[in-house]
Computed example of a mutant assay.
Amino acid sequence: MGKARLSVADLAALERGRFSDGRRSYTVRASGPVSPDSFQVYMTDNAADIVLIVSGLTSGCLHATWGEEWRSAPERAREWLRAWAFHVFHNGDQSVPARPAPRRERHCDG
């Protein structure tokens, strides 16, 4: 029994959004429509050009697998792409991901 092939419409339904670094455009696609365990980032003009796969979303044991070109990229570039990928996966838009606010600790003496 062969693997089921997804139609173009099915693949489009899994797309969470896109973002760009000003030169290249990236697309984020979930592994499934409900509670996906992974997502992938690929070059928008070539879905076979995988940039990043993040797995373990449902288990909380996250694992990033980088595409060939990105394995040797500077950590700063990979962190930028990873942050955008998560932002688009969760929010589905191209807004700039907010930087985390400085943590303010509160203590109760009561």
Rank of each mutant, 00 (worst) to 15 (best):
G2E: 13
K3F: 13
A4K: 12
R5Y: 09
L6T: 03
S7Q: 01
V8W: 04
A9Q: 08
D10S: 11
A13R: 14
L14D: 07
L14M: 08
E15I: 04
E15M: 10
R16D: 00
G17H: 07
R18H: 12
R18Q: 15
F19E: 02
S20E: 03
S20R: 03
D21I: 04
G22S: 11
G22K: 05
R23N: 07
R24C: 07
Y26R: 04
Y26S: 03
Y26V: 01
T27A: 07
A30P: 01
S35Y: 09
P36N: 06
D37E: 08
S38C: 14
S38F: 12
S38R: 13
Q40A: 02
V41R: 00
V41C: 02
V41A: 01
M43Q: 14
M43G: 00
M43D: 11
D45T: 15
D45H: 15
N46E: 15
A47C: 13
A47M: 13
I50Q: 08
I50H: 04
V51W: 03
V51Y: 02
L52T: 00
L52K: 01
I53H: 03
I53A: 08
I53D: 01
I53T: 10
V54W: 00
S55L: 00
L57P: 06
L57V: 12
T58P: 00
T58R: 10
T58I: 02
T58E: 10
G60M: 03
C61W: 02
C61Y: 06
L62V: 02
H63E: 09
H63W: 03
H63C: 12
A64R: 01
G67K: 07
E68D: 10
E68G: 02
E68R: 09
E69H: 01
W70G: 00
W70A: 04
R71L: 06
R71C: 09
S72W: 06
A73S: 14
A73T: 06
P74E: 09
E75D: 13
R76N: 10
R76G: 03
A77F: 06
A77Y: 07
A77R: 12
A77E: 15
A77M: 11
E79L: 08
L81H: 08
L81S: 07
R82C: 11
W84M: 02
A85Q: 04
V88D: 09
H90N: 15
N91R: 15
N91E: 14
G92W: 05
D93L: 01
D93H: 11
Q94E: 14
S95T: 11
V96T: 14
V96C: 14
V96K: 15
R99N: 10
R99F: 10
R99K: 13
P100E: 12
A101E: 05
A101W: 01
A101G: 02
P102A: 11
P102E: 09
R103M: 08
R104T: 08
R104V: 09
R104G: 03
E105L: 04
E105H: 00
R106H: 06
R106N: 00
R106V: 11
H107T: 05
C108R: 14
C108A: 10
D109V: 08
D109Y: 11
